[in-house]
Design a protein around this nucleic acid. Structure first.
Length: 283
DNA sequence: TCCTCCCTGTTC
DNA sequence: GAACAGGGAGGA
């Protein structure tokens, strides 16, 4: 389940494959994989990929028209890809046939003229792609309300993002609060900060908020260093698994012993998500 | 603010 | 053959 560290790793491994390439063709094999507000992928051929970035859990390909192209204003300038649970971006040789879970693909021409093919494969079919102009992107509520990047967040700003009486874990999972945190890193950060995931946000004092932000940054940075976490499906653009799953303090470890205090870890549900925490270390 | 649904492979 | 995994959309 790609979250911020996994998406960051995909961006880093994908960039050398696609940056500077020109899009020569696009094919959609499953219409629901294209966001309803997206421009048709038919509008992509002719555009060059000038950059590969991340915003929250979104992979962003920056697009630029060829120098001679008119009407550039109506062409997409960004291709936003959300991997959701099982999405993968896979650089492959030109002409390779799509697999059973290929949802869309791009035919690319590298700067040296080599043809390549970029597959978007997604078994669960939750992932989406959104081709947009900057104006259109702002019509996408999810994009417009996306919260700040946690790794660049200052304590005062984090504090302003936190409000309401819901559980702190529910707040961390809300992409409007911070962008890019999912079930794994919410649980891991809360354990590292020693905070019970069910605690109401309003109950957290200034010291706890500072501790939580620091823990979140630590966990995300460590996971990026390990190229993310691979539970089952996640792979980077080179097909490699991450390694941070070997360092999980709590995620997926309900009933096992806490690595800090030895007490058995508890499981519960918060915000409809499986949640694991240590009843002794997290208060 | 919380719940259900979407989707499919894996596990029990 | 059902429960489960879960981010986000949409409705209660």
């Amino acid at each position: 389940m790609p979250e911020l560290p996994e998406v960051e790793t995909v961006v880093r491994t994908l960039a050398p494959h696609v940056q500077g390439s020109r899009i020569r063709g696009a094919e959609v094999l499953r219409a629901s994989a294209v966001h309803p507000l997206s421009l048709p992928l038919d509008s992509l051929p002719g555009l060059g990929i000038t950059g590969v970035r991340r915003r929250g859990k979104l992979i962003l390909l920056d697009l630029a028209p060829a120098a001679e192209a008119a009407m550039a204003g109506s062409l997409p300038s960004i291709l936003a890809v959300h991997l959701r649970m099982t999405g993968r971006l896979l650089p492959r040789p030109a002409g390779m046939a799509p697999g059973p879970y290929t949802r869309w693909l791009l035919d690319l021409e590298k700067p040296d003229g080599t043809p390549r093919r970029l597959f978007f494969d997604d078994t669960r079919a939750f992932g989406t792609v959104f081709a947009a102009t900057p104006d259109l992107l702002m019509q996408w509520e999810f994009w417009r309300s996306l919260g700040p990047e946690p790794l660049e967040l200052k304590p005062a700003a984090f504090d302003r993002q936190l409000s309401g009486r819901r559980a702190i874990k529910a707040a961390l999972l809300d992409q409007k609060v911070v962008a890019g945190v999912g079930n794994i890193y919410a649980d891991e950060a809360l354990h590292r900060a020693g905070i019970d995931p069910r605690r109401p946000v309003a109950e957290l004092g200034p010291a706890e908020r500072r501790r939580l932000l620091a823990a979140l940054k630590d966990v995300l940075a460590l996971a990026i260093d390990q190229c993310g976490s691979s539970i089952r499906d996640y792979r980077d653009a080179d097909g490699n698994a991450g390694a941070f799953q070997n360092s999980f303090a709590v995620y997926g470890r309900a009933g096992e012993s806490c690595r800090t205090c030895g007490k058995p870890l508890s499981g519960c549900r918060v915000a409809g998500r499986a949640t694991v925490f240590c009843p002794r270390c997290q208060r």
